[in-house]
Structure formats: C-alpha cells, structure tokens
Amino acid sequence: MDSEGLLQCPYDKNHMIRPSRFPYHLVKCRENNRHVAKVLATCPFNARHRVPKQELELHMQTCESKCPLEPFPDEAVMQKAEHFSSWQSPPCEENWDEDYSSAPKPFVLNEFGNYQPYSSHDSVDGQCAPGSV
C-alpha cells in the first residue's frame, strides 16, 4: 500500500490510516488508548487534530484549518438593524375571550361519550353473540 496520503494516528504512532477512515479510527483508537487520550486535546477548528494539551494554544494560532473571524463593519450592522426595526407584526385574528362552549368537544382517548365500546359479550336482541359463552 502506498504510504503517501496516509495519516498518522495521534494515539498510536504505528497506525497509518487512509484519510477517509481517519475519523472512525480516531474514535476507536481513543477508546483503546485512554491513557494517551487523557493528555491530548481536540483542536476547535478541526476535530481530526489531536495535540498535547499544553501545546493547544500554539496549535490554535498556527492551525491550517483556522478560518479568519473578521468583525462586520459598523455600517453593515446598522443597515441590518434598520431593516428589522421597520417590521410590524400582523394583527392577531384569535380572540381568547370568545366563548368556546359551542365548540365541539375535544377528542379524549378511551372516552366514549354516550356510547360504550363494542364487546364480544354484547348480545343482539337479548341473545349472546355467536361463539361467546
């Protein structure tokens, strides 16, 4: 197998893994090497980067996965605030004070109103249903 393109496992330096399998290997190898996992930290910019905890600050400053966080210019923020401040909510069509006594009764599970559920012991014209004892 070509060793180019393989990534070295941070938990076991003898493990060389294909990039497509690397995230899965990290999870499995972390469980198998808990003593090493205790001293490694995960990079907040790329979860595949595992570095010693004492080197995390340096890694974060130099990480190639770090994306620059540039603040918005004040003009853009003010334009967005003006856009949203002119919005008005539509009038409410509900009237919570309205009397709902004429509304149909809501469905309640296992409530039958004036009706009783059918049972095989029910009789038809005073006789037992066929097959009932």
Results as ranks from 00 to 15, higher is better:
Val39Ser: 14
Pro23Ser: 07
Lys13Val: 07
Pro104His: 06
Asn114Ser: 11
His83Cys: 03
His25Cys: 06
Gly126Met: 08
Leu40Ser: 03
Asn46Glu: 15
Asn114Tyr: 04
Gln54Met: 05
Gln116Glu: 14
Trp96Cys: 05
Glu4Tyr: 09
Phe22Ser: 01
Ser85Ala: 15
Asn33Glu: 07
Asp99Ala: 05
Cys128Asn: 09
Trp96Met: 10
Arg21Val: 05
Asp74Ile: 09
Glu94Asp: 10
Asp2Val: 05
Glu93Phe: 01
Lys38Trp: 01
Gln88Ala: 04
Arg18Ser: 10
Glu57Leu: 04
Asp99Pro: 08
Pro130Phe: 14
Ser123Ala: 09
Asp12Gln: 11
Gln127Phe: 12
Asp12Lys: 13
Pro23Ala: 04
Gln61Ala: 09
Val108His: 12
Glu93Met: 04
Asp122Gln: 13
Phe112Gln: 00
Val51Ala: 08
Ser65Phe: 15
Cys9Glu: 04
Pro44Val: 02
Phe84Met: 09
Thr62Leu: 01
Val108Gly: 00
Glu75Met: 02
Met16Cys: 03
Asp97Cys: 03
Thr42Asp: 13
Ser119Arg: 15
Gln79Met: 12
Asp122Phe: 11
Cys29Arg: 10
Val77Gly: 02
Thr42Pro: 01
His121Leu: 12
Pro91Tyr: 01
Cys63Phe: 06
Gln61Ile: 03
Leu58Gln: 12
Gln116Ala: 12
Gly113Asn: 10
Leu6Ile: 02
Lys66His: 14
Lys66Gln: 13
Glu98Ser: 11
Ala129Gln: 14
Val77Lys: 14
Glu31Arg: 12
Leu40Val: 01
Lys28Cys: 00
Ser123Phe: 02
Asn95Phe: 06
Ala81Ser: 08
Asp74Arg: 11
Asn110Cys: 10
His15Pro: 00
Cys128Pro: 11
Gln88Thr: 08
Asn110His: 10
Cys43Asn: 09
Gln127Lys: 15
Ser102Gly: 11
Asn32Trp: 02
His15Gly: 00
Glu98Phe: 11
Tyr115Asp: 11
Ser86Cys: 07
Phe84Val: 12
Pro68Phe: 08
Thr62Glu: 10
Lys13Tyr: 05
Phe84Trp: 15
Lys38Ser: 13
Pro52Ser: 03
Gly131Ser: 08
Asn33Phe: 13
Arg30Ile: 00
Val124Asp: 05
Asp12Ser: 07
Val39Pro: 01
Arg34Ser: 13
Ser20Asp: 15
Ser20Gly: 10
Thr62Lys: 09
Gly113Pro: 08
Gly131Asn: 14
Glu93Asn: 08
His25Lys: 04
Ser85Pro: 02
Ala76Trp: 11
Trp96Gly: 06
Cys92Thr: 05
Asn110Gly: 00
Ala81Val: 10
Lys53Tyr: 01
Glu82Arg: 15
Ala41Arg: 04
Asp2Gln: 10
Ser101Pro: 05
Arg18Cys: 00
